[in-house]
């Protein structure tokens, strides 16, 4: 079984600085880590490999500095690493990112794709599902447990108010919750090996036949960030006292009408 885990390198802080011109993240000077949910994804894949064999490939889209995140994943026990990196990929939103990663996955091949639920810098939880859409494979999100049964994966999804247990035929894509498991440490020998391995770098030229170049990068992204700002805390609100039920309903409807919600 060929398992591919998609990881993102994220800043190790909640105080993210934005470039005021492009409204994208400034990565320089901020320590970087593997996104925690994605690290749980690595752990899930390594455990699955222990159960059924096969290989675990770690894949990351990012600048050349993402190399260290891939080395860390190799040092945890992944077999190979792929970096998707090109100037053309820069500034991609979630859809464009998913397009590029899907192209990378089609290039290298996969039976099972694992991603983290969401990244701590963007918190969109969109890239995993969007990759599945573009690959046209089943997507099972919010996985808390998973195991293999022949050509199927059995996944327990946690939706806070309920659990779903899903049986999905591979190839498929699973997004993992950070709560899945505490990721293993790297090993010292693993780090030595990680730096002896070659990381496959796929650039624009390698993937251009597998994607639509108009839908990648800053220009190809359907989402445009107009403005970034710190959300203001909500005020006290309006309190209407001593109203009958009918009067209260009328007041609420009037208020909703005023702010164009209805």
């Amino acid at each position: 079984m060929r398992i591919v885990v998609c990881i993102k390198q994220v800043p190790d802080t909640t105080e993210v600085k934005l470039d005021p011109k492009t409204n994208t993240l400034i990565r320089e000077g901020v320590p970087s880590i593997i996104n925690p949910d994605d690290k749980a994804g690595l752990e899930a894949a390594l455990r699955l490999r222990e159960q059924v064999g096969g290989t675990v490939t770690v894949l990351c889209m990012g600048p050349p500095q993402a190399d260290v995140a891939l080395r860390e994943a190799l040092a945890m026990g992944c077999d190979e690493a792929v970096l998707l990196s090109a100037r053309e990929f820069g500034g991609s939103d979630t859809w464009a990112t998913a397009s590029i990663i899907a192209a990378g996955l089609n290039k290298i091949g996969y039976d099972l794709v694992i991603t983290g639920r969401q990244a701590i810098d963007g918190d969109t939880a969109q890239v995993g599902p969007q990759i599945a859409e573009q690959l046209k494979v089943p997507q099972i999100s919010y996985a808390e447990e998973l195991y293999n049964e022949g050509e199927y994966m059995i996944i327990k999804q946690n939706f806070d108010d309920r659990y779903n247990t899903i049986k999905a035929k591979m190839p498929c894509l699973i997004t993992i919750l950070g709560e899945f498991a505490i990721p293993r440490y790297m090993t010292v020998g693993g780090i030595v090996d990680a730096y002896e391995k070659e990381i496959t770098v796929l650039g624009f030229e390698d993937l251009k036949d597998l994607l639509n170049p108009e839908f990648i990068g800053l220009k190809g992204s359907p989402t445009n960030v107009i403005k970034s700002f710190t959300k203001q805390a909500k005020g006290q609100g309006t309190k209407l006292a001593d109203l009958s039920a009918d009067e209260a309903v009328a007041a609420i409807i009037q208020k909703l009408d005023e702010i164009h919600i209805i």
């Binding site: 440490y185 790297m186 090993t187 010292v188 020998g189 693993g190 780090i191 030595v192 090996d193």
Partner: peptide, 23 residues
Amino acid sequence: QKCGFLGIPFPKEYGGAGGDVLS
């Protein structure tokens, strides 16, 4: 033991981590 801290500066051929004295 599991993280390999007991075999850091020894070659892999004997089961070590393949690191060095600096590590």
